[in-house]
Amino acid sequence: MSAPYIPEDIGRRALGLRDADTPATDEQAGRIADRIMTAADRVGMSVPEYVRERARRLNVTPENPEVKSAFWSFEVPHPDLPPGKALSNMYIAEAWAESENEKVPGSARYLEGTRGGRALGNLRLWDTAVHRELNLQGDEGWDLAKSAWSTLSQRYAEAAKGEVVVFAQTAFPGTVLQTTELPALRTNPDVGPDNIKFAYAAPDDWPPVAREELGTDAVRAQAQFALEDKPLHVDPAEYAAKPAEERTAVLGKLSADVAQADASHVRITPLTADAEVAGAKQEGGKEAGASGPTAPTPVWQMGFTPRPTAAAKGTSAAPVAAPEPAGPGVGKAVTGTGLG
């Protein structure tokens, strides 16, 4: 698989962002853990309870409702890196958002750059030194990091509006993008499957007909192409070998399976306005996106313009009714804890 095309200025900026990133030292991990344990103790919660609750309350709602939201997954090769080394799409998404916001302030955002994302990022939950300082047992640290970030990711996707951009070629099964963000975007009435745009072309090792028909944004927003034993799988090579009618049937089944899966998607209860304001005050500063129009969607496709074809037309997931409001128990869980 060759490298997806990334504009040179974005790639260079992303590399700079990566080079500025450093892991937490034991001292930093100690200070972070101290802050978390002290805050958890103050509200009478265990550390995992406190962090999970905090992730439910951090502010990821854009002040400019027109802001374009970016999503990312995995890494991509970069021409300035040695062969075999890759650059996280997180830095590409960050570089893209920075670049767009320089042109039109408040027009683009990515999760880790939101007010809530920065606050959760400051907790360094993916760092084993922080786990150790928090005395989290075995998988507890990883489970906590994953659940807190999944919660924030879902709320970020549920708060998105209009077109969104995904910095990945496809969604790998089991990732937050595939299990949390894409379902939330597809079922978000302000986004929906037709507004999910991929920045990169489909992998160029797919057969041409698969690139043409499975490589559309609509199909990539629904299917996974990697693991046969996981739901929503389509094998590009097998697909390409089928006659047109069978390919249409494959896409129809995918659509139906996605609609069924999305019907069980449960939104996270939005916070009350008061709680969000309290959170915003605590984190300080304003999220990018205070005003201005939306950023253009980057479609960095080299020599390939995905468009619906005869087989791919109408493959967007069937419209899904707005999800039921969460039950009172869930709503209760996010209010009245005194957390900021």
Partner: peptide, 26 residues
């Protein structure tokens, strides 16, 4: 599958491969 790679050895230990930078594995 993402963020921080963890692997199980044939002798049963769960190894964590901590990346130098956040957001990726290498």
């Amino acid at each position: 599958v993402e963020r921080v790679l963890r692997v199980r050895t044939t002798t049963g230990a769960d190894l964590t491969l901590e990346p130098l930078v956040s957001g990726g594995w290498s």
